[in-house]
Amino acid sequence: MSEESTYYVPEQSKYPIAAATGFGLMAYGAATWVIDSSNPYILILGTLVMAVVMCMWWNTVITENMQGLANAQLKHSYVLGMLWFIFSEVMFFAAFFGALFYLRVIVNSWLGGDAAIGIFDDTPTDAAVANNAILWPGYEAQWPVMETPDQAANGDAAIFKGPDQAMSFPGWANIFSWLPLWNTAVLLTSSFTVHIAHTGLKNNNRKQFVTWLGITVALGLIFLVLQAEEYIEAYQHMGLTLDSGIYGTTFFMLTGFHGAHVTLGTIMLMVAFFRSLKGHFTHDDQFGFESAAWYWHFVDVVWVGLFLFVYVLD
């Protein structure tokens, strides 16, 4: 065992307790705020504490790294940490995709009265028939749900009203004004550009690295702008909102969480970009950049799923 390769165990640190405090304040503040929207102060305070601590913490990690304290083994710990973190994010999205699947395929046919008894027997179950006949008369299973069961049964008195228009494929004639398609193009391209940047870094081609990383950040920002545009469109012209029944619910929750992750990914890439301008990262020391890139690929894959299941498949 040579001296250098001792695993670096940091001395005592004030960051964890500060971060935990910030996190606790955020949780407490968020709850206070959803109950009483005029009191966002604790939440803001918590977020600030958290942001400051995180910046300092990562700064320390980067400095330690620059000082050569982090040996290959420690870096591998970081890699593992990031990969498993991404895995946990995958599972978070899995919950929402699972919910979408269940609502679309199963619940919809229960409420519509045509849920089959079994795989080989397509007579509807008695419960499904009763659902439709007694509880939600007039509801027809459909996706996107444009008319909610509530509307079908209660007409204008309904609390949950479906959207006027859905985000699905608008037909070949209108294909170019279909924002999600553009978004898909932007995001897929960005996955590609980040890869080119990565290749550049591996080959010690700094210029290629910095340029393509910059392009990726730009594409990320474009995606966010388009997404915002889509939401404005939905709210202002399509009657599609968070509370327009299950379609609005699943649409905004899935795309919204994805958007939040794109934001996070863009910030990570941006940090990597600025660090790259300062000359950080080499072909054998690139964890900070690589983790942002992995994260970006992950966000991209989620989008492909979204595009298929939220926008395309009817």
């Binding site: 919950a95 919910a99 619910t249």
Partner: peptide, 30 residues
């Protein structure tokens, strides 16, 4: 599975405060 739990409570949060209908059959949920 912890992220899935986070998903579950997030859906609750949205249903309670932001008008979604994950768990309400009237809106097409369950």
């Amino acid at each position: 599975v912890m992220p899935v739990l986070a998903g579950a409570v997030t859906m609750m949060l949205m249903d309670i405060n932001f008008g979604t209908s994950f768990f309400n059959a009237a809106g097409g949920g369950d």
